[in-house]
């Protein structure tokens, strides 16, 4: 405390008059670095990784045990792990994203950030990229399973690449959608719950399409293509890259981040 009294004497003011070198600001990169660092310091993120790896490990061994019998004709399917991961995303993504914006809003730190010379978009992109990067690490961890598979059988490399690329984009789209809910509410639990529900709905859209396919096939096709599964399971997971699938995921990311930005802006307007 006594230090401050000394500081407040007039002769100290020259300290502030020193030059500040400005420029070259890439705000989203700073946000990205901080958020990604937080993931690697957060016990929750490790718990997610543990739960995911344990679950995948058990299923992977169940899958491999079929190959004990050479006559069973089990083919090495490297798309299995990324496929399971995309299914788990409805749990993983909300946990990764729930605090991203909700916490900033609740703690009030959003107010300070929004008075820094940084567009909301940069801020949201930085946060999104961090969550996506963490998910990418999770996805890359499943390469261990791939390497095991590769030592036992002969997975199709092209299919493997397609499946991983698809799972990566899929994760990006899901995380972006979850960002919307964390921007809407300050309550992390509500954000996580609504995110999980949204992702499940998108995941099950093709099932929903089945129910209406007899009454309105046109609408059923629309609903199916709106969902996530139609753009992954039948195409990329099998090694087929369709431009429209890539566009779907990319547009999903752009659209969801755009909406998130709008919500944060609107909250500023109403704040």
């Amino acid at each position: 405390m006594s230090v401050m009294t000394d500081q407040s004497t007039p002769h100290q003011s020259h300290v502030l008059s020193q030059d500040v070198k400005m420029g070259g600001s890439v705000p989203f990169w700073a946000v990205f670095k901080r958020e990604l660092g937080l993931y690697f310091r957060s016990p929750v993120a490790y718990a997610i990784a543990f739960a995911m790896l344990f679950f995948l490990g058990v299923l992977f061994n169940g899958y491999l045990s079929q190959a004990l019998d050479a006559q069973a004709g089990v083919l090495a399917d490297a798309g299995y792990m990324p496929f399971l991961l995309t299914f788990l995303l409805f749990l993983i993504a909300p946990l990764l994203t729930m605090r991203l914006l909700a916490e900033e809003a609740r703690e009030g730190t959003l107010e300070v950030l929004m008075t820094l010379p940084m567009h909301e978009g940069q801020f949201i992109i930085g946060k999104f990229l961090a969550a996506w990067a963490y998910y990418t690490v999770l996805l890359l961890l499943t390469l261990v399973h791939f390497l095991v598979l590769n030592s036992i059988g002969t997975p199709d490399m092209g299919q493997t690449f397609g499946a991983y690329l698809g799972a990566w984009l899929y994760g990006g789209a899901v995380i972006a959608v979850c960002m919307i809910w964390t921007a809407v509410t300050e309550d992390q639990i509500i954000a996580a719950f609504l995110s999980a529900a949204t992702v499940l709905v998108l995941y099950l859209a093709d099932v929903a399409a089945l129910f209406i396919t007899n009454t309105n096939p046109q609408l059923a096709e629309f609903v199916r293509e709106l969902g996530l599964s139609a753009h992954y399971g039948s195409t990329m997971a099998a090694g087929i890259i369709r431009l429209e699938d890539i566009l779907y995921f990319v547009f999903m990311i752009i659209g969801a981040l755009f909406i998130t930005t709008r919500i944060v802006e609107t909250r500023r307007w109403r704040a």
Binding site: V20, K21, M22, G23, G24, S25, V26, P27, W29, A30, V31, K33, R34, V112, L113, L116, P117, M118
Partner: peptide
Amino acid sequence: MYVGEIRGVRNVGRR
């Protein structure tokens, strides 16, 4: 450091 980086302060450590 975080705020300084967002602001684009280059000599952020010293500042």
